[in-house]
Computed example of a mutant assay.
Amino acid sequence: MSNEVDENGAGSRVWDPKKSLTAIATCIGMGLIIVVIQALQVEQWGQFVGQASIMLAISGAAIMLGGLIGFLFGIPRRLQSEVNVKKANSEVIDDASSERQLYEGNTNLEQISDWLTKIIVGVTLVKLADIVGELSRYGNGIAAATGRPADAAFAVGLMIFFFIAGFLTGYLWSRLFLGRALSEAESRIRLQKKLDKLQQQAQSDAEAIAFARRQLSTGDPTLSVEAIEAILAAASAETLAHVFSLAENNRWRNWESNKEQMERSILIFETLIRLDQQGRYHRNLGQLAYCLKDKRQPDWETAENLFTRAIKCRGDANTHGWAAYEANRAIVRIALGDKILRQFGSIDEMNMAIKADLATALQDYWVAGWLRKDPHVEKWASDSQNKNLLTEREVVK
């Protein structure tokens, strides 16, 4: 018990359970002193050693037995109800990977404790009369061993006294310290797993960035497509965004002056598109389409398909921007000409689709600035069959 002052200034007495262990230890010490005093009643030194040894052995055995049973009764239980498991799982959700808690501690000891406590209580209640008789026979056996009839009652008393003391010690220790020790051990295990995961993620991110820089610098012909995809798949979302930025900057800086250097971004964009299985990022599609349109040997058809996919993924240009997709798709369709007539059925329908893309693109001031000067658009608009669809003034000026 300890004195504390509450918020109103009144004194209160708070029970400190740890002091109970101190009190029990004091009682055990006093019991051992009594054992020694009782052994001193013999006349010879040899008899004293024998008497003390027997009684101390009885005391130690009773303490250990009581402590074991108290430990079994006091083993803390894990919170394993459905609500608690869901709560625990929700606390370990990771922002990037949405990881759930899949591991729980081994509960075999708790189950054994539950079984044994029920068995012990049941056997004690059923065999109570037999236990009293066994204690009497036990005391008589000790008295016969020491040669002192009075030791029978003393031995039974020692057994009961130290058994209770051991039980209380084991029970309180389990309740006060074992639960905390198990919780701290599991916390350290979870923390170590998180640290290991962070370390592994950092290594994967470093490998992804190193690959991207190497690819954009000199290329790495030794890596297969599967190996490249595995490297980037292990990277975090933030690292993939950085890899995308490196490839995008490389394309932007070199698409006119150094097309060979620009083409090194193609492999990265292709891999990022394969990793985006849900099709959430239109910029991967758009950047790859730019690369295929502007490379040394343009792949117009694939670029046209990619621009269409990017537009569908992006949504409305007036809301989300990126009208350059429509502008470049119009340029690609003009360059393809008759090769894509099968998509539209007639030249007039194809020209109407091109006109719709140009109309959308021209609403963006920045796009309109360079689109009017594009040679493909200028040639298409000057064609006699398109004058009624899109006047020269609308496109060129």
Rank of each mutant, 00 (worst) to 15 (best):
I266G: 00
Q277A: 13
A359C: 15
I347G: 05
I273R: 08
A368H: 09
H320C: 11
K379P: 03
R329V: 05
G279M: 02
Y290M: 11
K259Q: 07
Q297W: 14
W300A: 00
A310L: 02
I266V: 02
Y281W: 10
A356D: 10
P298I: 08
I331W: 02
E349I: 07
R283V: 13
T302K: 12
I340Q: 03
C291A: 14
N284D: 04
I268Y: 10
V332N: 01
C291R: 08
K379Q: 11
I311R: 15
L272K: 07
L358K: 03
T360I: 15
G279H: 03
W370Q: 13
M352I: 11
E270I: 06
A330C: 08
V367N: 01
P298V: 06
S265N: 09
R372Y: 09
I311F: 10
I268E: 07
E378H: 12
Y290A: 14
Y290C: 15
L288H: 06
M262Q: 05
G345I: 00
D299E: 13
R264T: 05
Q297L: 13
Y325I: 07
V332Q: 00
Q277W: 11
H282T: 05
E270M: 09
T360W: 08
D276P: 09
D299Q: 01
Q261C: 09
L341R: 01
D338L: 03
A353N: 08
D338C: 05
T271E: 12
K379A: 13
L267M: 08
E326M: 14
W370G: 13
L371R: 06
N258Y: 01
R264C: 02
D348S: 08
A303W: 04
Q297C: 13
K293H: 10
A327P: 06
N305E: 15
K373R: 14
Q278C: 10
L336V: 06
R333W: 06
R333A: 03
V377W: 01
E304W: 05
A323C: 12
C291K: 03
R264G: 02
R274Q: 07
I334M: 10
H282M: 08
H376C: 12
H376V: 09
R280S: 13
K379I: 11
F307V: 05
L267H: 14
R333M: 10
I266K: 04
A359Y: 08
E301M: 12
W370C: 12
D364W: 09
A356W: 04
R309Q: 15
V332A: 06
I311Y: 07
K339R: 12
E301A: 11
F344L: 01
T360A: 15
R333L: 10
R314G: 06
Q278I: 11
S265C: 12
D299H: 03
K259A: 02
